[in-house]
Nucleic acid binder design. Structure first.
Length: 883
RNA sequence: GGGGGAGUGGCUCAGUCGGUUAGAGCGCUGCGUUCACAUCGCAGAGGUCAACGGUUCGAGUCCGUUCUUCCCCA
C-alpha cells in the first residue's frame, strides 16, 4: 500500500466497477421497501458548479445509506431542457454563422437545438458522475423526451378542460432582449438609484388644487415616459388634501387628453405628493386599478422596447430616449415641478439581466387559487415536511399570496402549447394530439399556437412523469411517491412548490414526504458565486486537486442544515488530509493483519480495557450516526465519524494496540487484530455514504471481503458492547497520560527520554494503573511506574500533577525548576478553586436543590468532589514544595 | 413595507431537550524525522458567546428591545 492515498486512480476504477456491476440500478421488488429520490434535473446547458456538488453529495449520502440499509433504492437522474438558456445558446451559435432563427425557420432551428443537445447535453451528466453519484443511469430522463412531453400535454389538456388554464390579455413581465415574457418568479428585483420626477398635470376646468399651488395636481413618477399612456390620476379617498378634486378632470400634458381624478385606497398618501398617475398598460398595480375603475388601457411601449404609435410624436423612440425628451418638453412647458433622487426596485430578467418591461400581452396562465389550496393544506397537516422547518413558513407565505402563473413563452425550444386556432371560425382547440379539423366549423385551416411552455411546467411533473405517468406503470406504482427531495433553497418557488400542487392535482398524493433544503455555496468573502463576478470555483478543479471524497466532505461537514456556507480552500484541504489519515490508519491495520478474517465474537473473552473502550466508542458512534442520518443532519453525522476516526481510533486505540501487536503471545495479537479489523471495517461502512471512493478502495483490501462496500449491510450498533465503565476508566488513563505529557513538555524533557513515574492512588485506581502499566509506559514515555499508597510519603524533587483521580510524580532530578513548578501548580490550583467556588455556589442555592432534577444535582455534587480532591492534592504538593 | 437567516477565540464555523471546565478546523507558540501518516505527532496560548433588559434554581441556548449584517418577497 502506498504511503499516500491516490484518489485519481481509485475514483475512476470504482465508479466504473459500481456502474458495470449494476449496483446503481433499482428494480421493482415487492419483497423490499422502496426508497426513491428524483434528481433536481440540471440544465443541459449547465456546467457543474458548487451548487450541484452540494446537492448531489447530499442526495448520494442519503441514497447510499438507504441502499446499504436494505431499501430498494432508486435515484432517478435526468436533465432539463432549459428553454430560454438553450435557445439563447443556439441563437448565439447561429449568429456566429451570420444567421438568425427566423431566417432558418422553426423546424430547422429545432433540429439545430437537438443537434446541440446530442453534442453537449451529456456534459453535465458526465460531470455528475465525477461526484460519485449513484444514480440509476439506465433510467435517465430528459424533460423533452417522449414520455415527459406526453405528460406535459396530458396535464395541459386536463387543466384546460377543468378551467384551470386560460388565455388572456394580462400584464406580464416582458423582456425586450430575450423577446419573451417571463413569470413573476423569474424577475429579480434590484435596488437602483433613479429619479423621482414631480409632474404638474393642469386641471381641465381651471379649479384650484386646494393646496394653493395653482390649477394643477402634481404627481410623482419614476417612469415619466409612461405618462403618454396615462388614463387617470389617483389619490387616496382618505386624503384631505385632494378630497375636493376627486371626480374632477385633469388635462394630460403633451397628449392633451382629459383624464379623471379617481379615488383608490391603494394609493399611498405619504409617497411623493400622494397623487399618482395611472398607466394601466404599463404597471401591474395600475393595471389592477384600471380594472377596478374601468379605465382604458393605452399601450405606449411595444415589445421591442420602443414607443408605439399611441405615443404620438415619440413613436419609434427607445423608451429611455423618450424619457429624456419628455422631461425636456415638460420642463420647457413649466410642468416639471422638481426632481428628486430616489432609490427604487427595478425588475430584471433572471436570464439576461436587462430591465423588464411590464406590459399587456395575450398569454396562457394557470389559475392558481384552486391548486394552491390543497398544496397549502398538505404542508400544514405535515404530510409534506420541510427540513429545516423554517422553510415551511417561506413556502406557505408564498403559496398563500400566489398569483396566476404565466406559462407561455415566446420561444421555440420547449413544449409547444397544445392549442390550435381555427383560421375560419376562430375557435380554440386544446388537444393531446394535433386535430385534423375544427370541431366547431369543420375547417381544416388550423394553426398551432406559436409559443412554448415555461420550462418549469415540465419539471413540475418530474416526480411522476419520469416514472411513466400518465400510464400506470409498475415503477409508478412501486416508487411513487418519492421519499425525499433534496434541493437548494433558491428554487423553492420555481420548482418545489409547483411539484407539490401538480402532484396533488394529478396523483392525488404529494410527490415526496420530506423536502430537504440546502443553502448556497458562497465564495470566501460570503458572496454568491457567479460567472459574471468571476468568483465561481469549479468543483472539477477541486476534485483534480484534492479528490472527490474531500470535496464531498467539504460540501456538508460543519455547516448548519439549510444555511449558506462559505467555501474555503482550507476546508477541502482539511478533508483531503482526513482521507489521508484514514488511508494511513488502514495501512497500519492492514500491515498488521494476517490473511485470515477473524471474527470478533470469537475473542469476546479476551478483550482488554482498550478493546472494550474502542468497541464501546465505535458502537456509540454507529448509533449516533444513525440517529443523525435519520434527522438528515448529514453534516453532524460526518463530523461525528471524522472525530471518531481521528481522535479516538487513530490517536488512541491504534497507539494502545501497538504494544500488543508486537506481543509474542499469539492470542493477545489475534484479539487486537480482530478488534482493529472489526472497528475499521464498520467505520469504513459508516463512512461510505460520505466518502464512497476511499472507503471502497480500503474495504476491498481487507482480507475476506468480496462484492462491494456499497452493497454491504449498514452497520448496526450493538448495545451489548457499549461499556460506560470502560469509557470512564480509559478517560482516567487518558487524563493521566495527558498530565504526564504536559509535565514533560513544560519541563522540556526530550520526547525520546524515558522517565520514571510514581502514582499515589487509592487501591482501585492503583489496580487500574497496574493492569494498564504497559499502556501508560508506552503512551507516556515512561521507564517504570510505581504505585504507592495514599498515605505513603511523597517523593521529593519531583514534578507533580493531579489527574484522573491520582497524584502523579515524575522525579526529574536536575530538570526541575522549582519556581516554575510552583507557578504551574499554583495556576492549576487557582483554576480548581474557581471551579469549586462555582459549583459550591450552585449547590448552596436552595432553589437549585429544590427545583433542579436530582440527576443534575448529583452530577454537580460529583463534580465538586472531583474538583475538591484535585484542589486538595495540589495544595498538599504546593505546601510541600514551599515548606 | 412584510418575512427569514446570521452576529460565539485572529479567520471560517459547530453547539441537539436550558444544566459541558463553551468545542472544531485553519492560523499562532514551543517541542518532535527508525518502526501507519510532516497531507503527521505531542504540548500550549487564545472567548465578559453583538448590547441592554426579562423569564428561570440555572441562559450561548427561551422572551422582549436595540444595533450590525445577509437573503427572500411586495
Amino acid at each position: 500500500m502506498a504511503p499516500a492515498y491516490d484518489y485519481r486512480a481509485a475514483e475512476e476504477k470504482w465508479y466504473r466497477f459500481w456502474e458495470n456491476s449494476g449496483y446503481f440500478a433499482a428494480h421493482v421488488n415487492p419483497d423490499k421497501e422502496p426508497f426513491s429520490i428524483v434528481i433536481p434535473p440540471p440544465n443541459i446547458t449547465g456546467k457543474l458548479h458548487m451548487g450541484h456538488a452540494m446537492d448531489e453529495t447530499m442526495q448520494d449520502i442519503i441514497v447510499r445509506w438507504k441502499r446499504m440499509s436494505g431499501f430498494e433504492t432508486l435515484w432517478l437522474p435526468g436533465t432539463d431542457h432549459a428553454s430560454i438558456a438553450t435557445e439563447a445558446k443556439v441563437v448565439e451559435m447561429l449568429a456566429k454563422e451570420g444567421l438568425t432563427k427566423t431566417e432558418i425557420g422553426r423546424e430547422a432551428f429545432l433540429e439545430r437545438v437537438w443537434e446541440w443537445k446530442r453534442q453537449y447535453g451529456g456534459t453535465i451528466v458526465n460531470q455528475l458522475k465525477r461526484l460519485g453519484s449513484s444514480c440509476d443511469w439506465s433510467r435517465e430522463r430528459f424533460t423533452m423526451d417522449e414520455g415527459c412531453s406526453r405528460a406535459v400535454r396530458e396535464v395541459f389538456v386536463r387543466l384546460y378542460e377543468k378551467g384551470l388554464i386560460y388565455r388572456g390579455d394580462y400584464m406580464v413581465n416582458w423582456c425586450p432582449v430575450c423577446q419573451t415574457n417571463i413569470s413573476d418568479v423569474e424577475v429579480e428585483h434590484e435596488e437602483e438609484e433613479g429619479s423621482l420626477w414631480y409632474l404638474r398635470y393642469p386641471l381641465a376646468d381651471g379649479a384650484g388644487a386646494g393646496d394653493g399651488a395653482g390649477a394643477a395636481i402634481i404627481v410623482a413618477t419614476t417612469r415619466p415616459e409612461t405618462m403618454l399612456g396615462d388614463t387617470a390620476v389617483a389619490v387616496n379617498p382618505a386624503d384631505e388634501r385632494y378630497r375636493k378634486l376627486i371626480g374632477k378632470t385633469v388635462l394630460l400634458p403633451i397628449m392633451n387628453r382629459p383624464i379623471p381624478v379617481i379615488a383608490d385606497e391603494y394609493v399611498a398618501m405619504d409617497f411623493g405628493t400622494g397623487a399618482v398617475k395611472i398607466t394601466p398598460a404599463h404597471d401591474p398595480n395600475d393595471f389592477e386599478m384600471g380594472i377596478r375603475h374601468q379605465l382604458p388601457k393605452i399601450a405606449v411601449i411595444g415589445e421591442d422596447g420602443r414607443m408605439t404609435a399611441a405615443a404620438g410624436k415619440y413613436a419609434g423612440q427607445d423608451r429611455l430616449e423618450c424619457r429624456k425628451g419628455i422631461i425636456a418638453e415638460l420642463e420647457a412647458a413649466g410642468l416639471l415641478e422638481k426632481t428628486e433622487t430616489h432609490v427604487h426596485n427595478v425588475g430584471h430578467c433572471y436570464r439576461c439581466d436587462s430591465s423588464v418591461e411590464p406590459l399587456i400581452s395575450k398569454q396562457w396562465f394557470v389559475k392558481m387559487e384552486p391548486l394552491a389550496k390543497p398544496a397549502i393544506d398538505i404542508v400544514k397537516n405535515g404530510a409534506v415536511e420541510f427540513i429545516p422547518e423554517r422553510f415551511t413558513k417561506i413556502y406557505l407565505n408564498w403559496m398563500e399570496n400566489i398569483r396566476d402563473w404565466c406559462i407561455s413563452r415566446q420561444l421555440w425550444w420547449g413544449h409547444r402549447i397544445p392549442a390550435w386556432y381555427c383560421g375560419d371560425c376562430g375557435a380554440v382547440i386544446v388537444a393531446r394530439d394535433a386535430p385534423q379539423t375544427c370541431g366547431t366549423c369543420g375547417s381544416s385551416n388550423l394553426t398551432q399556437d406559436q409559443d412554448v411552455l415555461d420550462t418549469w411546467f415540465s419539471s413540475a411533473l418530474w416526480p411522476f412523469s419520469t416514472l411513466g405517468w400518465p400510464d400506470q406503470t409498475p415503477e409508478l406504482e412501486y416508487f411513487y411517491p418519492t421519499s425525499v427531495l433534496v434541493t437548494g433553497r433558491d428554487i423553492i418557488f420555481f420548482w418545489v412548490a409547483r411539484m407539490i400542487f401538480m402532484a396533488l392535482e394529478f396523483m392525488e398524493e404529494p410527490p415526496f414526504a420530506k423536502v430537504i433544503m440546502h443553502g448556497l455555496v458562497l465564495d470566501h468573502d460570503g458572496k454568491k458565486m457567479s460567472k459574471s463576478r468571476g468568483n465561481a470555483i469549479d468543483p472539477l478543479e477541486e476534485i483534480e486537486e484534492f479528490g472527490t471524497d474531500a470535496l464531498r466532505l467539504a460540501m456538508i461537514t460543519g455547516n448548519t442544515p439549510g444555511s449558506d456556507f462559505r467555501y474555503q480552500k482550507g476546508k477541502i484541504e482539511g478533508y483531503r488530509n482526513f482521507a489521508n489519515k484514514l488511508w494511513n490508519a488502514s495501512r497500519f491495520v492492514l500491515l498488521n493483519l494476517d490473511d485470515e478474517r477473524l471474527s470478533l465474537s470469537d475473542f469476546k473473552g479476551s478483550f482488554t480495557l482498550p478493546d472494550r473502550w474502542i468497541l464501546s466508542r465505535y458502537n456509540n458512534t454507529a448509533a449516533e450516526v444513525q440517529r443523525l442520518l435519520e434527522r438528515f443532519d448529514l453534516g453532524m453525522a460526518a463530523q461525528t465519524l471524522y472525530d471518531f476516526v481521528w481522535n479516538e481510533y487513530c490517536d488512541w486505540y491504534i497507539e494502545m494496540a501497538k504494544p500488543r501487536l508486537r506481543s509474542s503471545e499469539p492470542s493477545e495479537r489475534r484479539t487486537v487484530q480482530a478488534v482493529l479489523r472489526h472497528v475499521l471495517q464498520g467505520t469504513l461502512e459508516l463512512l461510505h455514504p460520505f466518502i464512497p471512493f476511499i472507503t471502497e478502495e480500503i474495504w476491498q483490501k481487507l482480507p475476506g471481503n468480496s462484492g462491494s462496500i456499497m452493497i454491504a449491510p449498514w452497520p448496526q450498533a450493538d448495545p451489548g458492547l457499549i461499556d460506560a465503565k470502560a469509557e470512564k476508566e480509559i478517560g482516567a488513563l487518558m487524563d493521566i497520560i495527558r498530565a504526564i505529557r504536559n509535565v514533560r513538555a513544560e519541563m522540556n524533557v526530550p520526547p525520546a527520554k524515558k522517565v520514571e513515574a510514581i502514582c499515589q492512588a487509592d487501591p482501585e485506581k492503583g489496580q487500574l494503573i497496574d493492569t494498564n502499566r504497559i499502556l501508560l509506559q508506552t503512551l507516556g514515555g515512561l521507564s517504570t511506574i510505581t504505585v504507592i499508597q495514599e498515605d505513603a510519603p511523597k517523593p521529593e524533587k519531583a514534578a507533580a500533577a493531579v489527574a484522573g483521580g491520582i497524584s502523579l510524580f515524575l522525579p526529574l532530578a536536575g530538570m526541575i525548576d522549582l519556581t516554575k513548578e510552583v507557578e504551574r501548580l499554583e495556576k492549576e490550583y487557582h483554576q480548581m478553586q474557581g471551579l469549586c467556588a462555582g459549583v459550591e455556589a450552585k449547590l448552596s442555592n436552595a432553589g437549585f436543590l429544590a427545583k433542579a432534577p436530582a440527576e443534575v444535582v448529583s452530577k454537580e455534587q460529583e463534580k465538586l468532589a472531583g474538583y475538591r480532591e484535585k484542589a486538595l492534592k495540589l495544595k498538599e504538593r504546593l505546601d510541600a514544595l514551599k515548606g
